[in-house]
Computed example of a mutant assay.
Amino acid sequence: MKKMEVIKLTQADAARCALVDLTQVPREVTEEDAAVYRRVISTEITEEQAERIAVPRRAHPTQEDVLAVHWHPEYVPMELIRRRVETLYPQHEAELIIPTQHNEILEWGDYAGVEVDCYSSGFNRKVQLLLHFRKENVAGERAHTLRSMLSHTFEYRSSQLFEFLDSASLPAMEERRLQAAEACNADADIVEFAAIFSAKLRSLIEDNWSATPRDAIKNKLLRNFLDEFRPTYGDLLLNKTQVYLKALKELVKQRFSLTYFYRASEIIEEARSLGAGVVIPHPEQFWPILLADYDVDGIEVWNPQSREYTEFLIRAVNRQNDYRCREQRQLLIFMGDDCHMSEKLKDPALQDPEKAAREIGLQPAWDDLAVRKSLILCGVSRAGVIDEYRARLNG
């Protein structure tokens, strides 16, 4: 297999890690590495995986309304997902289900959706928006401009992965590695172990570029690639490595040029021309966007990554609605499950338990007693949001 330059780091004074003997870790790409790479980029679904998707571990027969406008099918077939939803909520009556793949428009029934990466020039940071449409409004040439904008934005995740891999392995990026190691107290051997596998992964991507799905080229490819080596190197070493790489990834994201993205106002304007509904997700990660007065239909007040300020956000949306004039539409309250279906394809031993537990349309905050108290005071219900948002989309 391909030989690579041996990676040497300069953390001479850093602590060493007793979990790994680096002299026993091959620097070259091995047949095992290549087999692992083929496995993690594969979009083929086995019968066992199909069963895992179609038959969830538990159902929610008492949930009558399914509102799911923030979730990611990835490469899982919609027919399998539909079977899962029907099994999850066997008694449901009302539903509004719209997929929101990152920077790629996908359809479900009469609707289509996408989660768009963009930036807000007012406070100079990356944000995300959920766009939802009647599917005929984005068919054919009608949505040519928006699809071109999304196609450009889609490529940023590939660009960021390469910068991530370079940051983990190239000698010129030593300072960034040291900063990440200091942030999470990673030993020198952890940093070097991550560097070896990052270099291997970059080499494998380059050697298999034509056979690699473009959607696979994103940051989590490194995490998935490394996780496959848990039987060889053990959970403790891999856990420590993943913590370090997460810290490094955050540094890469912070320094990624925002000029790559379209402005949020540009995305909203183009989406509105196609009759789109627009929702702000992840409010706890993007606080300033709540002050930007964008033309949106609603704000996500809860998702599995943003749960701490749900009641505060409900009150904040209600206050904004109190100040709106009669001609302005009320801001709607949404909750997002942020379910990534590919997590459920993994062997259960390799799944992230928190991510694997997410389900399309499952947002426990709707039934939380304290949150329900706030919702009742605002006159908000899941069924009401479904009816109002569907009416707006059907326009």
Rank of each mutant, 00 (worst) to 15 (best):
I217E: 03
W209K: 13
L237H: 09
R202I: 04
F229G: 00
F197G: 09
D235T: 15
D215Y: 15
E228H: 14
I190N: 06
P213A: 02
T232H: 01
N224M: 11
L204S: 02
Y233Q: 14
T212W: 07
S210Y: 15
L236E: 15
T212Y: 10
P231S: 05
P213F: 09
D215R: 12
I190T: 15
D235I: 14
S203N: 12
K200F: 00
N208R: 04
F229V: 00
A216I: 05
W209N: 02
A195I: 07
N219T: 14
A199K: 02
T232K: 10
D235K: 07
A195C: 01
D227W: 13
W209H: 11
L201G: 14
D227S: 11
L204I: 10
R214W: 11
F193D: 07
G234V: 14
S198F: 12
D227H: 12
S203C: 15
R223M: 07
T232E: 07
A194E: 03
D189M: 13
F225V: 06
F229R: 04
L222V: 03
A211G: 05
D215C: 03
R214T: 01
L204N: 04
F229S: 00
R202N: 05
K218P: 05
T212N: 06
A194F: 05
F193N: 03
S198V: 07
